[in-house]
Design a protein around this nucleic acid. Structure first.
Length: 666
RNA sequence: GGGUUCAUAGUUCAGCAUGGAUAGAAUGACUGCCUGCGGAGCAGCUGGUCGAGGGUUCAAAUCCCUCUGGACCCGCCA
């Protein structure tokens, strides 16, 4: 809050300056930024460059005038108790503001990070009249998650945590495509290619694998290979797809049990990484809900789609986009394309038309929240099976939907563009629909080597579930866990194996989460099992280590009754001279709310991960240069202990938003 | 062919939305620092014509155009 106060103060002053020139903010939209050279000051403004044109003077002249004439005479900025200590200007015409560190630090100690004022804005979630829906993960339930899926799930989960912490009401949806070709492929494998379904979970765990891995590695990949030599299987697949349209068919029931087993295993992986969801949406139920029929008639009646009579799309219902060309929605055999099925789901998420679902209990998650699944409403209360089931609008209040965020591989951006176009033409506020596209995760040469795949003329390769080119999420995580176990054991020989295992688990989860959010969405990630999951440098471990060291000091302070913090400190702030290390750390701690807001506004977790890493760096600096237990000056030591407390608090908050475990030992 | 997107230090990346002063990290290499509040750390050193060219501007890594190179999309697949 303090940093924001300073910015507001500068803002006000500059607006007063503008009135001196008989101008206002809308005419001169100046900015207040932080100069990258520390000596210039804490904040600076470009106002003189903007005024130069209007006043026909050089920026330097104007800066001189503002700093030496307007500001001193109007007495608006610099006063003895204010947070701004000095204003100066520098070629080519920046005005720089320097914070009065003593006043600032004084404010910091008074306010602290535990003061509710620190994030008052973020408290009234339940009163919010806005609701944000995030869809993420959405992996086809025919295989285990690979590291590419992790990028999706972790971005989504971090966004959920960021928006929640920033005071937004958020629900998370996981879309389960249980009636598509990919699921049909493994059903073909089970029913017609002789693969066994009888392997039960005990047998699987004896083989150190899970049902989702079994389906992905054995059934999905091998069935796809069989299609080459056995075209009859492809015909069987089409039959299965048809049969899946009838929810009461034997095939549907069989598929349901398979999908459920895979899904439960996929969720184990997601939960293991501390992702959580509110609702599972099954595609089969969107289809059964007949939402498509409602939308189809609107699309047809409004002339948004048309029936093609000639040419390659003859016999199909087609949407024609001016920008993106034509897209078939209904095939000539009357089945829907993948794209068409996406429309009712998007429309449902935006809260238009009716809501055909009630929500049934599915599972209790790692954070003890309940995960629900969609269930078609038939005739009121008869659909309820248990007391845990929820009423229609109690999980998602569609009247409050303000934004729908879909996290999706950027290869699907074109279709998402089309979707947004159609939503607009249907008369919906398509600006509420945001798809967040991220570039895929690809495999490095050494990752490919470890899979025994060799590719000519390339040093990386896209993953493919169908071709068996991927690194499984569970594998990557357990690999990292083994490495951190060795490291933890080495550093803490006195700990029991259980403790080492639990610590290593937290370290590896944190490392994976941090790794997948620190890149820009627009950058491909080349995944390398060794280099990507490092434990040194710009990693979660670095941050955890900083926290653990700090926590250790804090514990020792308490154990030794070393200091009675907060006693006898009133009004002594002025006499202390804090080092630049300490002041830099305090200032950074005070930026927490600004950074959180920015991460929320930009819908970008990377903002927060950068902030957190820098915070840990400044803390490590402080740790080296400002000893507490060894400091002989008791007052100074007490202040440092306060800085420590506050920093640890913000570190912890920030870490929990990204999903990095604050460990006391590691 | 049409479109989207990326290109910044040896390597992996921030910074680009909203132009601003001397372009930042991490890693690698090299040098110091543990009987010290935990060395998964700290300090130092090395490393850049911001892919190329043009334009707009007082000012361009950032905005616009062209080109080069990579990735992706353009299906009655999902």
């Amino acid at each position: 809050m303090i940093v924001e106060n300073v910015i507001n103060e500068i803002n006000r002053s500059l607006e007063v300056v503008l009135t001196y020139y008989k101008l206002n903010r809308s005419e001169v939209n100046f900015e207040i930024t932080e100069p990258h050279v520390k000596d210039f000051g804490d904040f600076s403004t470009n106002i003189c460059f903007l005024l130069a044109k209007k006043l026909k003077k050089s920026p330097n002249e104007i800066a001189d005038h503002i700093v030496n004439t307007i500001l001193p005479t109007s007495k608006i900025l610099i006063n003895k108790n204010g947070l701004i200590e000095a204003v100066s200007f520098l070629n080519p015409g920046f005005i720089n503001f320097k914070i009065n560190n003593k006043v600032f630090v004084n404010e910091f100690f008074k306010e602290g990070t535990n003061n509710p004022k620190f994030d008052t804005e973020y408290k009234n979630i339940s009163n919010s009249n806005e609701l944000i829906l995030i869809e993420h993960t959405s992996v086809n339930p025919n295989k285990a998650l690979h590291v590419g899926h992790l990028r999706n799930a972790i971005i989504g989960d971090c966004l959920y945590r960021i928006l929640r912490t920033a005071g937004k009401d958020v629900r998370v949806i996981n879309y389960i495509d249980d009636s598509g070709v990919q699921v049909a492929d493994i059903i073909v494998g089970f029913k017609h290619a002789g693969f066994s379904t009888r392997i039960n979970d005990q047998e699987l765990s004896r083989e150190k694998t899970k049902f989702d891995h079994y389906c992905g590695n054995e059934i999905y990949v091998k069935t796809n290979e069989l299609y080459k030599s056995r075209p009859d299987l492809e015909i069987k697949r089409n039959t299965i797809l048809k049969e899946l349209e009838d929810p009461e068919s034997e095939t549907s029931n069989f598929t349901k049990t398979i999908v459920d087993r895979v899904l439960k295993d996929q969720l184990k992986t997601c939960w293991n990484l501390r992702c959580r969801y509110d609702l599972l949406c099954f595609e089969s139920q969107i289809v059964q809900s007949n939402l498509w029929n409602d939308i189809f008639s609107i699309l047809r009646d409004k002339g948004i789609i048309y029936y093609e009579k000639v040419g390659k799309n003859s016999g199909c219902w087609v949407y024609k986009s001016t920008k993106e060309g034509e897209k078939v929605l209904v095939r000539s055999d009357l089945t829907l394309t993948y794209f068409a099925k996406d429309i009712p789901f998007a429309v449902w998420k935006l809260g238009y038309l009716r809501n055909p679902f009630v929500y049934a209990f599915y599972a209790t998650q790692w954070d003890s929240s309940v995960l629900y699944r969609t269930k078609i409403e038939k005739n009121g209360s008869e659909t309820f099976e248990s007391s845990s089931d929820l009423e229609k609008e109690s999980l998602i209040d569609f009247n409050r939907i303000s934004k729908v965020i879909t996290i999706i591989d950027s290869r699907q951006e074109r279709l998402q563009n089309l979707l947004v176009e159609i939503l607009g033409k249907l008369g919906m506020d398509s600006s509420k629909y945001k798809y967040l596209g991220y570039e895929p995760v690809i495999l490095s040469q050494s990752s490919l080597d470890s899979l025994g795949i060799s590719v000519k003329d390339k040093n990386s390769l896209h993953m493919s579930g169908r071709k068996g080119i991927y690194i499984e999420a569970d594998m990557a995580l357990s690999n990292l866990e083994e490495r951190s176990k060795a490291e933890t054991r080495n550093r803490n020989p006195e700990l029991s194996e259980e403790e080492i295992a639990s610590i290593s688990k937290e370290i590896s989860i944190s490392a994976v989460r941090y790794f997948f959010i620190k890149f820009d969405f627009g950058k491909m990630i080349t995944f390398d099992i060794k280099e990507s999951l490092s434990l040194e440098g710009d990693t979660a471990s670095y941050i955890q280590y900083a926290y653990a060291r700090g926590k250790r000091v804090e514990d020792k302070i308490i154990e030794a009754s070393f200091l009675k913090i907060q006693n006898n400190l009133e009004n002594k702030f002025e006499i202390m001279d804090f080092s630049s290390t300490e002041i830099d750390l305090i200032k950074h701690v005070c930026r927490y709310d600004i950074e959180l807001k920015q991460a929320a506004n930009n819908i970008d977790p990377k903002v927060l991960s950068k902030y957190l890493f820098q915070l840990a760096t400044l803390f490590n600096n402080f740790y080296e240069k400002s000893p507490i237990l060894k400091e002989k000056n008791v007052i100074l030591a007490t202040y440092r202990a306060l800085i420590l407390n506050n920093t640890l608090e913000i570190l912890k908050r920030c870490m929990s938003i990204i999903g990095i475990s604050p460990l006391k030992r590691m």
